[in-house]
């Protein structure tokens, strides 16, 4: 039931724009983390992290073969939880 009797069409449009802006902000932050752990820690910044040793090798290797995958998982669940909350805040949930 999509009709929102308590909102005027204009108000809905405005809140939809704010909802979208909030969503894009969460996406940008998540993608910065996504790039940092994989391309950053896993590849480009590996030399800078070489001093930190993890199980017989360095932190960069750990990020490349294990850490980035764990962070990816955390990111997707963070996004799902955060967005479900945002849906409720803006009253746009199904």
């Amino acid at each position: 039931m999509a009709d929102q009797t308590n909102h005027g069409a204009e108000a809905t449009q405005k809140s939809d724009a704010a909802y979208w802006a909030a969503n894009v902000r969460i996406i940008v932050i998540s993608l910065i983390v996504w790039a940092l752990v994989s391309f950053g820690f896993g590849i480009l910044l590996r030399p800078a992290l070489s001093g930190i040793s993890v199980g017989g090798t360095d932190l960069g290797f750990w990020f490349a073969q294990q850490g980035s995958i764990l962070v990816f998982l955390a990111l997707i669940f963070f996004y799902a939880i955060r967005m479900n909350k945002l849906d409720k805040e803006f009253g746009v949930e199904e």
Binding site: S30, F61, Q65, S68, F72
Partner: peptide
Amino acid sequence: GYDNSSFLMGWTGGYVLLALLLAP
């Protein structure tokens, strides 16, 4: 060894893009 970590990060990192940018 390390050089093929691309497969590990690439084939999982795509799901972040899918979850945030396309699926919903």
